[in-house]
Design a protein around this nucleic acid. Structure first.
Lengths: 143, 143
DNA sequence: TGAAATCAGAGTAAAAAAGTCCGATTTATC
DNA sequence: GATAAATCGGACTTTTTTACTCTGATTTCA
């Protein structure tokens, strides 16, 4: 039950973009160097972020990435959903619900109800946390 | 981010015990047959449950397992903690905290705070759900 | 036209989850 | 006391997921 590296890196990468001056595009290399994230892996993650509409890509020479939305409009929940393969406590509360094992032998899956409630709580926290709110509490490193 | 099979099976196994008449001990074979859980795997999980003090084991002929505590005194959170290897949204909110990647480069790890809050919500839900409360909503299968 | 960048997706490696096996130990019963 | 029935304990294997790499194609600025 862990948020994976992909989600982690996505947030870090987006925060890096959010800290740039208006209009600047940055390349994967710069972010991966600065944040010590494997370049190829980050590139792949950014592809998902482009598809999900969180960042704009600028191809060709002088290209790179930039935020596509104001930081206040991007929540952790949205990011994780775009990047994590299965962001759910259990299959029965995932995008493709399916009760494991003998869940289904119990009258009306008692466990699924509990999972759903827990999942709801997590989602609520991640939904109200935006890039903007993270920016306020995480200043640029001061090396 | 999923509750694993081990946690799932543990709950199902404990519920099975909870449904038995007072004083009856049941063998792994019976539970694994009834709930279609791999026998060896369930046996292994039950060892953890014995260590954690949730079930009593009775060795030798005529032995088996029985609940060691009233169902109302056993919460999902306790079960998961006994059986899941790492029941935490992220390492920084786990038993052995450790910030991944460049978490630590940010002033005071903004993400860790969010994870901690989300984890707290999940724990709260699982802490107040006991075997007793699950029993009420999950009648014995009626094959 | 060519260098610099992303795109797309297949492929690989490492780690965790899921499940198996077997010999040792305990204990009720004959 | 012997034996059969059960758990104990842990090493082992398999499968799945996570994490990461590679490469060739495409786009675009200069």
């Amino acid at each position: 039950m862990q948020v994976t590296r992909a989600g982690e890196y996505a947030v870090i990468g987006l925060l890096y973009l959010a800290r740039q001056p208006e209009g600047r595009t940055v390349m994967i290399d710069e972010i991966s160097d600065a944040e010590r994230i494997p370049k190829s892996f980050l590139a792949k993650i950014f592809q998902s972020l482009v598809k999900a509409g969180f960042v704009k890509s600028h191809r060709g020479a002088g290209g790179g990435f930039s935020l596509a939305k104001p930081p206040a409009d991007v929540s952790l929940l949205q990011i994780f959903r775009a990047v994590e393969s299965a962001f759910a406590l259990q299959k029965c509360v995932s995008a493709e619900p399916e009760c494991v094992v003998s869940h289904d032998r119990l009258g009306s899956c008692a466990l699924c109800g509990v999972y759903a409630e827990a999942q709801g709580r997590v989602n609520e926290v991640f939904a109200r946390t935006t890039l903007q709110s993270l920016l306020r509490t995480s200043p640029v490193a001061v090396n």
